[in-house]
Amino acid sequence: MILPQFEYHKVQSVAGAIALYRKYKGKARYCAGGTDLIPLLKQRLSAPAAVIDLKGIDELKTITRRKGVLIIGANVTLFDLKNDPIVREHFPALFQSLDATSCETLQMRGTIGGNILQDTRCIQYNKSLEWRTSRGFCFKMGGKACNVVLNAQACFSNYCSDNAPALITLSAKVRLKGLKGERTVDLEKIFSGNGKAPFTVEPGEVLTAILIPLKKTEGVYEKLRVRDSMDYPLVDAAVSMAGGKARVCIGGIGPAPRLYVIKNMDENTIRDTADKAYADAKPVANTTISAAYRKKMVSTLVKRAIKRVLKEGGR
């Protein structure tokens, strides 16, 4: 399948990327590993005038520790990050989510920044232009309806990053550099909750780094999928625990991951968290598996993940 026409630029610096973005008046897309972007372009789900390749920016490729924080350059590949001893040692939930992401070959190409900023997905959305034209455009394509839920007012596409939920449980922040300067925000804050435009990232902003407080955690990542490789999560749950407190994050359902904080690890709180996560989850029939089942699995995965953390510490 051929790509639509666009210009291509490889930049050496974040400033260079932003300058180009400005030059194209926003009609440009940043590209890191491209494993999410290129299929979107092939299916004409995005039609930029230019693709700005961030892979030439060396500063985005490093992992450093500074003042009790692990700073991960956005262009570090999932595979390299998975094999970083600090990740394995300190952040088992992240290690497991990286390991469960897609397949090994795509882990070698996909970057952590790109994985976080991947577009939301829907079985009626990630299709060719011909298919979607025949079906009729939905909200996310600029249309006036949802093709999954009759009379819906919003887009229910799913955010399918394996790693963002794990990172959220680790209290990760992201650093964004854009036209108006640099900012650092909690990862869970970059989600708009709107499937049509799932991120609050400003136009032109580049995700440059992920920052994780450098302390040892226990953790687990649980992912439900049909095949044990390649598949996106149908629903997933990450748990990280330190000092008796736990953070639980649910992904794969709807446009934003949902965070739950457990202050006391007792049976009641665990059950309440599972119940709350279950109640909050609003899956619709936009994956290969039924919505009711995915909802049910939210509490199953939460309980299972917490049980595993308590039992094995995620190792």
Partner: peptide
């Protein structure tokens, strides 16, 4: 590195 060449731009691998 093994890459899916259908997802790689030739311009990227200069």
């Amino acid at each position: 590195i093994p890459l899916r060449s259908c997802l790689v731009l030739t311009a990227e691998v200069d």
